[in-house]
Each structure stands twice: as structure tokens, then as C-alpha cells.
Amino acid sequence: MGLTKKIVTWARIKSPWIIHFNTGACNACDIEIIAALTPRYDLERFGVLLKGTPRHADILVCSGPVTRQIEDRLIRIYEQMAEPKFVIAVGSCACSGGVCAGCYNVKGGINSTIPVSAYIPGCPASPKAIIDGAVKLLTSLKG
């Protein structure tokens, strides 16, 4: 690995900006994601910032199964993000469809629509689990 690449990888690990997208969750995982961003857990000490626009974000944090309504929008948001981009699926429903799998209006987990880099199971996933999953994703970039 060259020096430039090392510096860029370091910067990428130290400054993950996220965007949160609800693909059809029951809101429990969303509340836990918001809880992870509050001053109690203080994710800014790892450089995490919540961004409003997909153009600025590096990590798309999805919660909930992909419903047929949201499918096109999810693909659109994913394609609006600039490379390199990563997707984290938060919660059992986002990982596999969970209790919603096989429902008439549900397509399945996030990976049925877009490629996923990290899965964080839990119903809902706790803030500590979300932080742990994000850290594991970032450390995998080093390798």
C-alpha cells in the first residue's frame, strides 16, 4: 500500500459521515440510531456526523425491510451517493426481512435491493451494537 493510499484510508476511517434512511421499519431501530447519535454516546468523537444529503455521506444506514413502495427510492438514494460508499443494515428486518419476510408488500432484507457491507442484528439493535457494527466495518477497511 502506497503512502497516499494509506493516508486516504486513514482519513476514511476517521471521518465516516452517515445518512439515515428508513426503508419501512417500525421506528424502533430509527429511535435506537438517533439514540446512538445523542451526546450520551457522542459519536462525533469518532468523526461521525449525520448528514442530510446522500451526496455528502459515506455510509447509508438503513433500517427495516425493503417494501415494494420504497424499493425505487432506496436504489435512487444509493446511486446519488458518491464513491466510495458503504451500506449498514440495522435490525433484524433490515438484515433478512425478519418478521416481515414473505409479507405481500415486502421484498426482503436490504441486500435484496442494494449491496450491504455490514449487518447489525437485533430487534431493535441497541446503540452500542450499532456503534460496534460501524467500528467493525471501518476496521475492515484497513485490511
Binding site: V8, W10, A11, K14, S15, P39, D42, R45, G47
Partner: peptide, 17 residues
């Protein structure tokens, strides 16, 4: 806000990224 806040290299890491 009673938080830890970002480390000293944070704006630099943001810029390089």
C-alpha cells in the same frame, strides 16, 4: 454540550476524505 468532541485531526481527516 458536555460531550467529548472530535479529536484534533478531525477537520484534516474530513478534508482528505
Amino acid at each position: 454540550q458536555n460531550r467529548m468532541g472530535p479529536p484534533w485531526f478531525q477537520p484534516l481527516a474530513d478534508f482528505i476524505k
